[in-house]
């Protein structure tokens, strides 16, 4: 039995929108990010452990708001005070986290199946996001993340790369289809490729 991804029935492959006379390489690319493990890590209020002493996959845990620490397989996103999201393509990441973070000090929750992740890539990606989100994208660099809204839907934007601009957009699974409609509709004027 295979798992059904949140956008299984809505994400379509092909070229859409205003793509005439444009090079396909220059178009925006939308894809569904699958098979990522998402772990929410919350440090209990009573915990007195210094977060600086903890490393996961050799990554420090970001203390400043909106910061991300990353390597090839794992990204640690600052989500709120004493709260982080860990996204990893490693299957046994939860074991690694539990090994490094004492469960008496931290709440460790696997929320992999409660989020849909859309990746948007291309040099117009920020222009698409600007249409529905109030964040100042001129000051939004690589390895920054932000929790905000897009047309009223709460999303987390994780900036992966700047050449080309690449963002992972995390949204609650139940909002996934609605958000997909909003974001692809906003991208029509630029033309996009569903991959």
């Amino acid at each position: 039995m295979t798992a059904i991804t949140p956008l299984e029935f809505i994400h379509k492959k092909g070229i859409f929108g205003d793509h005439h006379k444009k090079n396909e390489v220059d178009l925006l690319r939308f894809s569904e990010v699958k098979n990522l493990t998402i772990i929410q890590l919350v440090q209990y209020k009573k915990s007195k452990i210094s977060i600086n002493d903890i490393k996961i996959e050799n990554l420090e845990i970001p203390i400043q708001s909106s910061n991300v620490k990353s390597n090839k397989e794992t990204r640690i996103l600052w989500s709120a005070p004493r709260t982080w999201l860990i996204l990893s393509s490693k299957e046994n990441i939860i074991k690694t986290i539990k090994k490094n973070c004492d469960e008496a000090e931290f709440a460790i929750t696997d929320i992999s199946h409660s989020r849909a992740i859309i990746q948007i890539q291309g040099n117009q990606a920020k222009e698409v996001l600007k249409k529905g989100s109030p964040i100042n994208f001129n000051e939004f660099d690589v390895n920054k993340c932000v929790s905000t809204t897009f047309h009223g839907i709460t999303i987390i934007i994780d900036s992966i790369s700047s050449h080309p601009e690449t963002f992972n957009l995390l949204v609650l699974r139940s909002f996934g289809e609605s958000f997909y409609h909003h974001i692809t509709d906003a991208a029509l004027e630029f033309g996009y490729v569903g991959v």
């Binding site: 708001s65 909106s66 709120a80 005070p81 109030p134 932000v146 905000t148 809204t149 009223g152």
Partner: peptide
């Protein structure tokens, strides 16, 4: 639209609050 400074995240638009 107000711009509100969250003590944790910094200045953000009112519709996040």
């Amino acid at each position: 639209m107000l711009e509100i400074k969250c003590p944790y995240c910094g200045k953000r638009s009112q519709n996040e609050f």
